[in-house]
Design a protein around this nucleic acid. Structure first.
Lengths: 258, 258
DNA sequence: GTGTAAATGTTATAATATGTTCGTTTTCCT
DNA sequence: AGGAAAACGAACATATTATAACATTTACAC
């Protein structure tokens, strides 16, 4: 079993998963008569390509059984700030409310914090948010209809816009891809920007979440301005001058650390 | 059974719950040939994923886990027949069509077969179908809006019905929970039955998929009759007398083995 | 052959997992 | 209720595994 090309060995390793639910480094090293290091490198390579996850001592199948709507890498980017912002946003939520939760990684963190909330109705175009909350006992999730956007687990298009018009919400949470220095809110996708605009119309109050890395940038599609927003939550690393300017536009500006 | 990586062992422990509703620390320790302390640590880790509930001496399934496994179990049940039926259904699909795919394990198998289709539009209330097809390059997936049904990855309710009315499809595929001997189609959920009825209205042609174990049964909600159906696909194990009767009602009855 | 890049092995160090002991808590039996 | 037996959890010692850096081998072109 020695002297196999790496690709062949990796394919054979992959095939182990058909019958077993996981493999061990030591076992594979023995079977293929290579060092554990080689097996580890194989598993690291396989982890990138497909549905396995490395663990201590081996690897297991990622059992994304039903809903595989994940943002992968983007979710990790500046996650601490996003979580802090989400925790602050969580405080605005009262039992019994109807919330709109936009798509995005920051709102997804907020969704995770709402799992144990009581008697909430959450309306969202995000499959990731819906997936996160689908088992939450105190939360009724209403997913907007629409076309699934390629590469991103959310819904957009005329159907989404039409669905959204059917609702009225107490409070909407929205991430932003960029916030201009003049307080303009930007999305990097035109279809999303349309949905976001309507969202602002059907929600009574409106909260924008964005970490400091988004401030001072622009993106493809303008979708409004902070002047129309009730709350703007960001982290303390945001430039103070910009925050002062934003506050003068109207929204209550809340900063959290880190 | 020794020397398994922790994650693999934990996965196998999880799988015990598919057949049993509880496990014991001592039993697992014996089976995996590890100390009770290790099993306890495993169970503590699994409890963290919110799927199981630890008890004295072992662990039991939590409600959510039961539903999850219920779904997985249903998917495995008679899967060969479902796949054969789905393969036959696949032949009805032409490039460029707009399809309605209902929720259900058989239609989910069909969705898997449509991954490499060209230029299709698929409209579905099923999150599982959407998940399966979200990365298919030749398929545009439109998800209907609606309330996420507890314990089942699909959408129902007035919003779903409203969304559905926006569309017109060439061909609809629908599973059935039961087919009465008189050709009546049944669902086990009232909300689903309503969606299914509308689906029949907005589709030009209509195809019902059901393996032989569904035939001759009844369920909670009537949603129509095979007389209104264009194709009925089942497997050869279905009683010939019933199939003959069904064929006289109108649909083209197709049987596949196994 | 010789040079180069890829693959593999080796080592030291860090991280993680496991078993054991023992005091505490829970369960079960009378 | 009271007490024995079982199970639990914390803390420690031990063993296994991961990672990174470097050395070695192999593969393949020219």
């Amino acid at each position: 079993m020695r002297n196999l090309p790496p690709a062949v060995r990796q394919t054979q390793i992959r095939e182990r998963f058909a019958s077993r639910s996981g493999v061990s480094v030591s076992g594979l090293a023995r079977e293929f008569d290579v060092s554990g290091m080689t097996i580890r490198r194989d598993l690291a390579a396989l982890e990138g390509t497909a549905n396995i996850q490395r663990t201590h001592g081996g690897a297991v199948l990622t059992q994304r059984m039903m809903l595989e709507f994940d943002y992968r890498g983007r979710r990790e980017h500046n996650r601490a700030a996003k979580q802090a912002i989400a925790a602050e946003a969580r405080k605005l939520v009262q039992p019994g409310q109807r919330l709109l939760l936009d798509t995005g990684t920051t709102t997804l963190e907020l969704a995770a914090l709402l799992k144990d909330a009581q008697n909430l109705t959450i309306i969202t175009p995000s499959l990731a948010v819906a997936s996160e909350l689908q088992h939450a006992p105190g939360v009724e999730v209403i997913l907007l209809g629409g076309v699934i956007r390629r590469g991103s687990p959310d819904l957009t298009g005329p159907v989404t816009e039409h669905c959204l018009e059917l609702f009225a919400a107490d409070l909407a949470f929205q991430g932003a891809d960029a916030i201009g220095n003049d307080g303009t809110i930007y999305n990097s996708d035109l279809r999303l920007a349309r949905v976001d605009k309507i969202m602002r119309r059907v929600a009574n109050r409106f909260c924008v979440l964005a970490d400091h890395t988004k401030i001072g940038l622009t993106a493809l599609a303008r979708n409004g301005t902070l002047a129309d927003v009730d709350y703007f939550i960001t982290n303390t690393a945001a430039p103070a001058a910009a925050l002062k300017r934003f506050a003068r536009l109207g929204p209550q500006v809340i900063t959290v650390s880190p």
